[in-house]
């Protein structure tokens, strides 16, 4: 009897709570591709119909800029799907609310902030790759490169495009991975050599691959997800994972400190680490935080996971400014002198 009574009370209370949170709306900042957002919200609302998500979506740089600009007057409740390097920046500004989502322990350690409680949790990885246009490659008599070092060969001169790390997260991911893989000195030496072959640097990270897909350039340094998409659309692309290893960043989730909707925010973040959520991430991303969930994604290179380097996000975040300055000094001015 007592048991039943309790249950009923709980149900009633639960209903009451559900009703009261019905009105809860969360402002969620994200850099997830526009076409995926609807799906994300739908899936989430299947489990939690009482919370309405208002998306504020833009590219990584802009969302980051927006969040930093709003530092003293945060508008967002939750960040869901922004580069971890950006979240680290926000963490150091004290803008994120430390919170261990329920079930966080099930995630791959690589995908969770090392502080306790963690301030952010990763969703999926976003991995660098090289897009190679086979048709244009053939026309120009170019062999497909297999490693980063290959790209510095003289035959590729003027046939490579990569994103400018100063305006693209993907670009920065590449640069920081080279510095980690080849060491500071080796990394810069590599980039010096690569710079000789670069036709130009783009502002966005997906553009090199799209340009390669359109044959505007044979080789675009971009990320795997983009390449797979273009390939699915029928572009004559090979997605190459350089053998030295590839840099990556993850899309991650965090609660913005000072949110007035803490309960709902926690509910959302709890859900983002669930298995269902990770299955959902898997539609676009081959690598997700929840081990054992990932199924191969069409056109994704198979060896991607093992080639992902052990990325030191802290290094990347804390040296970001210095790296970018150095990069700008070396290549931004040099390339102008050429023209």
């Amino acid at each position: 009897m007592v048991q039943i009574k309790k249950l009923t009370l709980a149900t009633v209370a639960g209903l009451f709570v559900a009703n009261s949170v019905m009105a809860t709306e969360l402002t969620v900042y994200t850099a997830v591709e526009a076409e995926d957002l609807k799906r994300y919200a739908e899936e989430f609302n299947k489990a939690h119909p009482d919370i309405k998500i208002n998306w504020v979506r833009d590219s990584t740089g802009i969302v980051t800029a927006k969040l930093l600009a709003e530092k003293n007057n945060p508008q967002a409740d939750v960040i869901w799907g922004l580069a971890a390097t950006s979240l680290l920046l926000m963490k150091s500004e004290g803008m994120l609310e430390p919170y261990a989502p329920k079930g966080v322990e099930k995630l791959d350690k690589k995908f969770v902030d090392k502080s306790t409680p963690p301030t952010w949790t990763g969703m999926d990885a976003w991995v660098a790759s090289v897009c190679f246009n086979t048709v244009e490659g053939e026309k120009l008599g170019l062999k497909a490169p297999t490693s980063w070092k290959d790209l510095t060969k003289p035959e590729y001169k003027g046939h490579v495009i990569m994103p400018n790390p100063n305006s693209s997260g993907t670009g920065f991911l590449d640069v920081s991975s080279w510095l980690q893989m080849f060491g500071e000195e080796g990394g810069w030496e590599y980039m010096d050599a690569l710079h000789e072959n670069i036709a130009r640097y783009t502002h966005s990270g997906s553009k090199p691959c799209k340009l390669a897909a359109a044959g505007e350039i044979p080789i675009g340094i971009s990320f795997a997800f983009r390449g797979a998409k273009s390939k699915a659309e029928g572009a004559p692309l090979d997605i190459i994972v350089p053998e030295e290893g590839v840099g990556w960043d993850m899309e991650a989730t965090a609660i913005v400190a000072g949110t007035p909707n803490m309960e709902a925010a926690k509910t959302l973040v709890d859900w983002t680490v669930t298995k269902e959520a990770n299955v959902m991430y898997n539609t676009g991303y081959a690598v997700v935080a929840y081990p054992g969930v990932a199924k191969p994604v069409e056109f994704f290179p198979e060896n991607l996971l093992e080639k992902m380097i052990d990325n030191d996000f802290e290094y990347a975040a804390n040296n970001r400014k210095a790296i970018l300055e150095e990069w700008q000094k070396r290549y931004d001015s040099k390339s102008e002198a050429k023209s």
């Binding site: 600009a69 305006s167 931004d332």
Partner: peptide, 25 residues
């Protein structure tokens, strides 16, 4: 210049790069 400027930097694009790319307001 944003669309077709390539590596050729111009002032107006620099503002964009500084603000959006580097959050250096």
């Amino acid at each position: 210049p944003k669309v077709i400027g390539g590596q050729y930097n111009m002032l107006a694009v620099d503002i964009y790069k500084q603000v959006i790319g580097q959050q250096n307001f």
